[in-house]
Design a protein around this nucleic acid. Structure first.
Length: 418
DNA sequence: TCTGGGGTCCTAGGACCC
DNA sequence: TCTGGGGTCCTAGGACCC
């Protein structure tokens, strides 16, 4: 049996742990650069704040309801997420983390599933302060669906789909829109509606060949999953297929030098992520953008990539190549708003193809990276950086309403006044 | 004025092979 | 004049997810 454990309103719930009064107000967390709403508390949803809306479009709501705003605090959310996952692991079942706030748990034994779910929920709340919903079903897609039901219709936030043909569940299937299914997004909903499929029940009973024609093989898989036949396998963790870092800037950038600061910073960031996974990348790419929402200024968008001589995770090599790409695609006279650096062609370290000309220099670079990583981790974040990354960083995204790193920085630990 | 970031998988078409 | 059949690999673009 598969349990899908999903944290309720995860980011705002994290904020509420350290600031319980927040529960009395609608509360939202904003994306990078304080741009869009990416998480909403129960009350924020109730007053009608949509997911993903730019914050300047809801100024009125914010004022009228005294909505509490937060800049995203990923140090906090990441740490709380780890605690939740660790707590789930104490139950001893196989677990597959699916995102920052949810995990599939594979329960092989015949147990009282609802009681187990209740115990998990209680322990996570007690140990981490986070409320979760749990969906239980024989396939991943059904477990996701059960979780949706748990959040929306179950008082205890626990739902168990034991038999899709039972009266309770077939009613639910008849009353639920197709778009609630994991894997059926905006476009596929339109396509299905066009051929007269609106509810889960319609989808379940549709001809398999029609689904194949309309949605491709993924649609067929989804349909089988809904029938209780597993088609989506357990994921075993391996290295990523691609890694990117991108940011919208806090202000527009025109000069090549300042753009170099961003690109080198992101390239360094990507290198660090690679090293954390103990992996090497074969290709680097860089993208630069002007502000796509500005109708007044001239628009420009450019990208290019370089195939590296051999797979690497060296900051120096990745920064060098990213800068080379930037110099090639940069054009004067535009106002840049965003840049992106990424890599692909990733191998776990030791499994990469070797070249005939492996350079002795590589070992030096590796030792250098290790030393710098260690210093930056143990002594001071960004204590050592490459000069091209700059010191002032005027382009840093806005983040004016960030809570403290309560659980990961001794200087920001919660103080209690007696 | 102000509009996020990081991923995965599938498919069609092109280049190439025998 | 008449120009096959069976494959693989790679990539860009489009869909999806959180």
């Amino acid at each position: 049996m598969i349990f899908l454990i999903d944290c309720n309103n995860f980011y705002t719930s994290c904020e509420e742990i350290f600031n319980p009064k927040l529960k009395n107000f609608p509360c939202v967390v904003l994306s990078s650069n304080d741009g869009c709403v990416v998480a909403r508390s129960r009350l924020a949803k109730q007053i009608g704040i949509p997911m993903g809306i730019p914050v300047f479009k809801i100024r009125n709501l914010i004022e009228n309801y005294n909505v509490q705003l937060f800049s995203a605090n990923f140090s906090l959310y990441g740490d709380i997420s780890n605690r939740v996952m660790q707590t789930i692991k104490t139950f001893g079942f196989e677990i597959e983390q699916y995102s920052i706030d949810e995990a599939f748990v594979y329960v092989d034994e015949k147990l009282d599933f609802q009681k187990l779910a209740f115990d998990m929920q209680k322990k996570i709340k007690q140990w981490c302060g986070i409320p979760v919903s749990i969906g239980i079903a024989p396939t991943k897609t059904l477990a996701k669906l059960a979780n949706y039901h748990a959040k929306k219709f179950s008082e205890k936030n626990i739902s168990y789909i034991d038999n899709i043909y039972s009266r309770q569940w077939s009613n639910f299937f008849k009353n639920s829109a197709i778009t609630e299914v994991w894997g059926i997004g905006y476009r596929n909903t339109i396509r299905l509606n066009k051929i007269g499929i609106y509810t889960l029940f319609d989808f379940l009973n549709a001809d398999r060949l029609v689904i194949k024609k309309t949605l491709g093989i993924n649609g067929v898989r989804t349909q089988m999953e809904l029938k209780g036949i597993p088609t989506i396998s357990k994921e075993s963790f391996q290295t990523s297929k691609s890694i990117v870092t991108s940011r919208s800037f806090g202000k527009n950038i025109t000069s090549l030098n300042e753009l170099k600061e961003t690109v080198s910073t992101f390239a360094n960031n990507v290198s660090i992520k690679l090293r954390k996974q103990n992996a090497l990348a074969s290709y680097v790419f860089v993208v630069i953008y002007t502000n796509k929402f500005s109708s007044k200024s001239k628009q420009y968008y450019a990208k290019d990539f370089i195939a590296l001589d051999s797979p690497t995770n060296s900051s120096q090599i990745l920064i060098d190549n990213a800068i080379k790409i930037l110099e090639k695609i940069y054009k004067k006279g535009y106002e840049y708003k965003k840049s992106m650096v990424g890599v692909w062609g990733i191998f776990p370290s030791g499994f990469e193809p070797k070249t005939l000309f492996d350079d002795k220099n590589n070992l030096k670079l590796k030792n250098l990276d290790e030393a710098i990583d260690k210093i930056n981790l143990k002594i001071k974040k960004d204590g050592i950086k490459y000069a091209v990354m700059g010191l002032e960083s005027k382009w840093i995204p806005k983040s004016n309403m960030k809570s403290s790193k309560y659980t990961t920085n001794w200087n920001e630990i919660l103080e209690i006044k007696i």
